[in-house]
């Protein structure tokens, strides 16, 4: 009953924005040909996507002994694995039903949170040497040396399976869902985290319409950007949008704060037909006394405008 009420309240909030409110599960995929994992979107009190979770139940076999793992997984808004929770009464075990120790739990956390783990490049069969393939999803043999640090002894296949659920299969699906849920509130929530990976996710995902709708937020990320983010963001924003009133106002004010390469990226894209007075002044004040591509571009822009 409460859930239904919440649903109606939340959906009422959405009548004005273009956000769809998707029924759970929002995504699902299959592991090991038979196990179906369903992922749910979790929303905050304002109905904005907060994170994703899935209740995982999957069989794993360690050296011919098979048992079920049960955990809850959580991903953030852009599909990065965030953390896991054990299920009360369903502790994690290793070979021979040896329960996980405290340090095993910590090690598992580190393994799952390492999206760059070498587990990414191995198949299940390659995890051990001298494998004996069998119908019963289980093999015996010594764990290869390169893998040892990335797994828990006695729980090699559990680590492997869980890692791939956490970091492989889920990510793309979740990102697709997030894209469908874009709204001003969600974009604001994402941008405020000042997280470069999130910012790149946005500029790589946005349609032209998204850039129009969320230009203020993207411009904000440009100021926060480190390294080549500013340059890359400017390169991604369509020229017409960059040259609109808001875009020009932003660059008129902030041009000198940008690094050289972001400045050049902007100058290459700005459409000369619509440069306003403020931007003209900024550009005039940014001509150096030494020759550079930036200078060339500014001169061309100002000359065109003067014609």
């Amino acid at each position: 009953m409460i859930r239904a009420v919440v649903f109606f309240l939340v959906s009422a909030l959405f009548t004005e924005s273009k956000t769809a409110f998707y029924d759970n599960p929002v995504a699902h995929f299959t592991v090991a040909d038979s196990v179906n994992i369903e992922i749910n979107a979790i929303y905050d009190s304002l109905g904005v996507l907060s994170n994703y979770n899935a209740h995982i139940i999957t069989p794993v076999c360690e050296e011919d002994k098979c048992y079920a793992i049960e955990v809850d997984f959580y991903w953030d808004q852009i599909g990065r694995f965030h953390h896991y929770d054990t299920v009360p009464g369903k502790g994690l075990t290793k070979l021979d039903h040896d329960p996980f120790t405290e340090s095993d739990f910590i090690k598992l956390k580190n393994i799952l949170n390492n999206s760059n783990s070498i587990l990414a490049s191995y198949t299940k069969e390659e995890l051990v040497r001298n494998t004996r393939s069998s119908d019963v999803d289980g093999v015996s043999g010594a764990t290869i040396k390169e893998i040892q640090e990335s797994v828990i002894n006695g729980a090699v296949y559990s680590c492997f399976t869980l890692w791939h659920i956490a970091n492989g299969l889920a990510v793309d699906s979740l990102q697709k869902v997030t894209k469908k849920l874009f709204s001003r509130e969600l974009i604001k929530n994402l941008v405020i985290q000042d997280d470069q990976e999130i910012n790149y996710f946005l500029i790589n995902s946005f349609s032209e319409r998204d850039f129009t709708d969320y230009l203020p937020e993207i411009l904000q990320t440009i100021l926060q950007g480190k390294g080549y983010y500013a340059k890359n963001a400017v390169e991604k924003i369509p020229s017409e949008i960059l040259s609109n009133i808001l875009g020009q106002g932003f660059f008129a004010t902030n041009f000198t704060r940008l690094d050289y390469f972001a400045q050049v990226a902007f100058l290459k894209k700005i459409s000369t037909k619509s440069i306003n007075e403020d931007l003209k002044t900024t550009l005039r004040n940014n001509v150096d006394n030494r020759n550079s591509y930036k200078n060339d571009l500014i001169k061309v822009l100002l000359d065109d405008v003067n014609d």
Binding site: Q196, E197, N199, N204, K226, G227, Y229, N232, E235
Partner: peptide, 8 residues
């Protein structure tokens, strides 16, 4: 160090 994410 590499910038996480990059343009695609």
């Amino acid at each position: 160090l590499m910038e996480t994410g990059s343009i695609k």
